[in-house]
């Protein structure tokens, strides 16, 4: 279970999260919606442990442990996974090399045995196929020259390989056409399980037709302004975020 209490976080000395409370029980999928600039990505970075995001108040507990005490790699080992809104391009690192380094690092940290090369290849092939990822793509440098959809599918591939139990998806739907959206959603739904919690961040309701959440939270000005069931997403689709304002400074 993830428990966030009174979370305050600043970037470059500016407070972005201003007393956020959120609880995601094991096995549940919660959606976070909200206008641009409301702090959705900030929340995801704080959860993943990005250094320039400073937590000034509040607590985050994950499976009873203080998440804020952990380095990003320790969080990954503890089961936290962030599918980035903008996945990084790394020229010179073959995607396959990266996947293998990541999987083995996490397995090692969890006290599991590293995969042998043939085992690893077999598993990657299997999971890549579900996401309609071509093996040729995995031989290319990480995310370099990948289309928006390829990058997002690659994120979900990493998620399925690393077997996290807290999956945070930051606008995984942005830039996806309807086919890619379906493939990605199926990939995500396949990972739903009673042990896994998911935080699905999205600006639009569309994704939630495919990944149906247990709860929906609306983020506004760095706090959860409203929570409800899946019907809340539909309501927002009609009314827009007008009622929730836009953070003045983030209009750009």
């Amino acid at each position: 279970m993830l428990e966030i209490k009174n979370l305050h976080a600043t970037v470059d000395g500016r407070e972005i999260l201003k007393g956020l409370d959120l609880t995601v029980p094991a096995g549940e999928v919660h959606a976070i919606m909200g206008p641009n600039g409301s702090g959705k990505s900030t929340l995801s970075y704080v959860l993943a442990g990005k250094e320039d995001y400073e937590v000034t108040d509040g607590t985050i507990t994950w499976k009873g442990e203080n998440l804020l005490d952990m380095d990003p790699e320790e969080r990954a080992a503890a089961g936290v996974f962030l599918a980035f809104q903008y996945p990084m391009e790394i020229p010179g690192v073959a995607t396959m090399t990266f996947l293998r380094s990541a999987v083995n690092a996490v397995r090692k940290a969890r006290g599991q045995e590293e995969f042998s090369t043939p085992d690893f290849l077999r598993i990657v092939k299997e999971k890549a196929k579900l996401l309609k990822i071509d093996m040729a793509m995995l031989r290319r440098p990480l995310n370099v020259g990948f289309s928006g959809g390829e990058k997002k599918r690659n994120e979900i591939l990493q998620m399925s390989l690393l077997e996290p139990d807290l999956c945070i998806l930051d606008e995984t739907d942005s830039g996806l056409d309807i086919d890619a959206l379906r493939i990605v959603s199926e990939g995500v739904n396949a990972l739903r399980s009673p042990e896994r919690s998911m935080l699905v961040i999205t600006h639009y309701q569309r994704l939630l037709n495919y990944i149906v959440p247990d709860r929906v939270h609306v983020l506004s000005k760095g706090r959860v302004a409203r929570s409800g069931g899946p019907e809340l997403a539909l309501e927002l689709e009609k009314s827009g975020y007008a009622d929730y304002g836009q953070d003045e400074a983030s209009a750009a």
Partner: peptide, 12 residues
């Protein structure tokens, strides 16, 4: 880039 790799579990 460093954060991306660490978030995937690679030690610093």
């Amino acid at each position: 880039l460093l954060f991306y790799l660490r978030a995937r579990g690679l030690p610093e």
